[in-house]
Amino acid sequence: MPNNIIEIRNLRKVYHVGSEKVVALNHITLDIEAGEFCCLVGTSGSGKSTLLNMLAGLEKPSLGTVRIKGQAIEKMSEKQLARFRQENIGFIFQSYNLIPTLTALENTAMPLIFRGMPRKQREALAREALQRVGLANHMAHRPTQMSGGQQQRVGIARALVSRPPIVFADEPTGNLDSKTTREVMELMTSTTRDLGQTLVLVTHDLSIASYADRIIHISDGNIVKIVNNRKRLAK
């Protein structure tokens, strides 16, 4: 019996652009297992980002339901969602989205600040996370003093620091060169595996998708193909 951490049932999202209806997602049903590395692949406009946003509770579905750890997140209030994200979700962005005035250490500790964790405790955890991503020597650097790859490592550390069971990554390597891309992908794969986290990654790049346990192809709001690549779960 597989342990499904994310259950998507009959999910539909329709945008109204002027008087026209645009179907972004069309009756998606999908289960994601705990500890799985799942990749959503599709071209621009396929609806893959919309799906990710709905998994993170950033958008409300037009129809259907998303259950994470058994809880229907589309029914949560903003406040409940914030708490839910604090405890369960880490986020990695394409453009890193670090806060420019804060150091790498402070940026990493951000999610813990929102939880109200005391400074000493959260800085210890952030230091540990930065060491894990290989930035032990850059803790006091500000984002502008770091390369793109280093910034994304801080982004990964930030997503790991509170040990959330789920990490969402939206084109995390979109702004990186191929060498750095490889490093970042390997880092993400290994750390999420070591911490037993579920990783859901959105990309249009099939070479990146090859890191995943399962590749879900999305086109025009529908799941068109699911490729199992279970090297991770097999271990």
Partner: peptide, 16 residues
């Protein structure tokens, strides 16, 4: 704007 959005995604309470 962007920073505020990121903070929200990272689980910052609206009231905060």
């Amino acid at each position: 704007t962007r920073e505020i959005g990121v903070m929200k995604v990272l689980g910052c309470l609206l009231t905060d």
